[in-house]
Computed example of a mutant assay.
Amino acid sequence: MTTETQNIQQMKNILEAALLTAGEPLSLDDLLRLFVERMERATLRMLLDELKTDWQSGTMELVQVASGWRFQAREEYAGFLARLNPDRPQRYSRAALETLAIIAYRQPVTRGDIEEIRGVAVNPNIMRQLIERNWVDVIGQRDVPGRPSLYATTKTFLDDLGLTSLADLPPMETFTQAEIQLDL
């Protein structure tokens, strides 16, 4: 094994250890701080791609989400792992999911925008629930009389859904087509 190959393997081992022990996704800047010598972002991305390939046949996978990189169990093990945590995952009402979808696809939006689209008043408990979950945040106020709050999704929302950006959301047409087919 050449010295360069040993160096690359050592850097991958450092990245792997950091990612496996981190409690949250690590950004490229976080990962660059692991190394004393200056490293180019392109080199770091190459090492992450190699690490991702190395783990391709394992039980874990290296994924990129909005706030960085993380290891997670592959989907086929989710049912088994759920047995370790018998607490039921939080259920969201249809109204909460509709509200979240409107915010995700139309952000930034005001409560009035949401009510106009849904055709009903927004329950304050729904907004509080989405904010407490850190899926939605107030990002400012619209410059109109009353200065209503503007809501948008957070990086936590993207991370929890395994997305790197809002562009990764399925197209809105997917839902409207599904709803049309269900109505038939």
Rank of each mutant, 00 (worst) to 15 (best):
Q10M: 13
M11R: 15
N13Q: 15
I14W: 05
L15A: 06
A18H: 08
L20Q: 00
L20W: 03
L20R: 10
A22S: 10
E24R: 08
P25I: 02
P25T: 03
L26D: 02
L26H: 01
S27M: 00
L28Y: 00
L28A: 00
D29M: 03
D30N: 10
L31P: 07
R33D: 14
R33G: 13
F35V: 08
V36R: 12
E37C: 07
E37H: 01
R38M: 12
E40W: 04
A42M: 09
A42V: 12
T43G: 02
L44E: 05
M46A: 14
L47I: 08
L48D: 06
D49T: 15
E50Y: 15
K52M: 12
K52E: 12
T53G: 08
W55R: 06
Q56V: 13
S57Q: 12
S57K: 14
G58A: 15
G58E: 14
M60A: 12
L62D: 07
V63C: 00
V63L: 01
V63N: 01
V65L: 10
S67P: 10
S67V: 07
S67R: 14
S67Q: 05
F71N: 10
R74N: 13
R74E: 10
E76A: 13
E76R: 14
Y77K: 09
Y77F: 15
Y77G: 11
A78E: 07
A78H: 09
G79T: 14
F80Q: 15
F80G: 10
L81N: 07
A82F: 03
L84P: 04
N85P: 03
P86V: 06
P86Y: 12
R88N: 14
R88K: 15
R88Y: 11
R88H: 13
P89W: 08
Q90R: 15
Y92H: 12
S93K: 09
S93G: 05
A96Y: 02
L100N: 06
A101R: 11
A101C: 10
I102F: 08
I102S: 05
I103D: 09
Y105P: 14
Q107T: 11
Q107M: 13
T110G: 04
T110W: 02
R111L: 02
G112N: 10
G112D: 12
D113N: 10
I114F: 00
I114G: 02
E115R: 01
I117Q: 14
I117V: 03
I117H: 02
A121F: 03
V122F: 04
N125W: 08
I126L: 11
I126K: 01
I126H: 01
M127I: 15
R128P: 00
R133T: 09
N134M: 01
N134T: 09
N134P: 03
W135Y: 04
W135C: 05
W135D: 04
V136L: 03
D137R: 13
I139H: 00
I139T: 10
I139Q: 00
I139R: 04
G140V: 07
G140T: 06
G140I: 07
G140S: 11
Q141Y: 09
Q141H: 05
R142P: 03
R142C: 02
V144E: 11
L150F: 00
L150M: 05
T154R: 06
K155A: 06
T156P: 01
F157L: 05
